[in-house]
Design a binder for these strands. Structure first.
Lengths: 209, 209
DNA sequence: GGATGTGAATGCATTCACAGCA
DNA sequence: TGCTGTGAATGCATTCACATCC
């Protein structure tokens, strides 16, 4: 039995998969060909057992006595996460955060391509954000279909985030990366990931106090 | 016994405290004076028991038969998180993300003030980022001391993040909000919170696949 | 020796269910 | 009746420890 995708891996394990991939790419840049669970773990402040267990949920990728092949494991993890192909991502919100994300190099380096930029503010329509024309929300259904976009980034003010989310979902988007400080309501089958910067700072304030 | 701060609350509970605070402020804007654990939980997709247990780690804030006083609980949570006063935050990195964060309204609304902006690139020194002069890293120790800054935001490229982190810690910073896609090594007593945008998208890609 | 993969044991967070109070 | 606070029970993730293989 060698599931290319786990039947039921713990959620935290899936989150760490991304970190393993990121770290493996660093090892590869450093010219390493093989890495042990202990080394991979130490670089991320995790135990070796944790690393092995996480990877084992998804298959048998290691070589006893040797460790894991860096190149090999990168390929496996990409396959599991689904980033062995390019994802077109829609970006809504041409404000400060939208601008920063529209040409964030970290996205393209990891298989994500911002495909189009939208805004709800009529005053911004027709202007550009870097190389992107800012499009009205009315273009959304057509563009989403053309680009086959299943992911979107929400970089709009809190008070219109739910409304925009609804429109994105109606246009076929299945995963939302939300930068508005609100808890979104979405139907089953749609994934949401909210990044609230103020919450992040609050957590630090608590720990530092 | 009524600990204003829990002796040992689960980490996940502390993270949710920030969400409760955010949601309570929304309830307050809506004019509500009281809220039950069930209502607070539903708005965040949590169970009522979870809400009560989380809050109970920190004290007895509720009124049986009534619920929680919105204004009262906001004050308590601010006190626990340490955001009942203004935090001066240093920002390093005057690129796209740094620019977006330097005037993110969500920070000031929640008790955080960007106090100064730094960059390692000599070409940027002396220029401005919005209202902030971009300062050289050599100014860091003095500014950190003057402002009493214990928190900092790292918005620099991955390959210099560790170096900048070391300098910030040497300057007395105790909490780092890191936007570089790397795992930072810090001494005990320093808190790190890494936000990796590509990792966030990867998680969505996995769930959507 | 050096490393993986994995059942068993541990530890921790969530949920349950109810006593107690308004 | 409505709601909180909390011990007890459950469920889930992590860690341990070892059989297995290079």
């Amino acid at each position: 039995m060698e599931p290319s995708r786990a039947d039921s891996a713990p959620d935290p394990a899936v989150r760490r998969l991304s970190l393993y991939l990121r770290q493996l790419e660093t090892f590869r840049r450093a010219g390493r060909h093989t890495v042990s669970s202990r080394q991979l773990g130490e670089s991320l402040h995790l135990t070796d057992a944790q690393v092995r267990k996480d990877l084992a949920y998804f298959g048998q990728f290691g070589h006893p006595g040797i460790g894991y092949g860096v190149e090999e494991l990168i390929g496996r993890l990409r396959g599991i996460l689904g980033t062995d192909r390019i994802w077109n991502v829609l970006l809504v919100g041409a404000g400060n955060i939208g601008r920063a994300l529209s040409d964030y190099r970290g996205f393209s380096a990891r298989g994500f391509r911002v495909a189009a930029v939208f805004d709800i503010d009529p005053a911004k329509i027709g202007r550009t954000l870097g190389p992107f024309p800012i499009r009205p929300m009315s273009d959304l259904p057509a563009v989403a279909r053309e680009q086959g976009a299943r992911l979107a980034i929400l970089a709009v003010p809190a008070d219109c985030a739910q409304d925009v989310a609804d429109q994105l979902i109606a246009a076929g988007v299945r995963g939302l990366l939300n930068f508005a400080p609100v808890s979104l309501n979405v139907p089953r089958g749609v994934a949401v990931n909210t990044v609230d910067m103020a919450v992040q700072l609050e957590q630090l304030a608590f720990q530092v106090t």
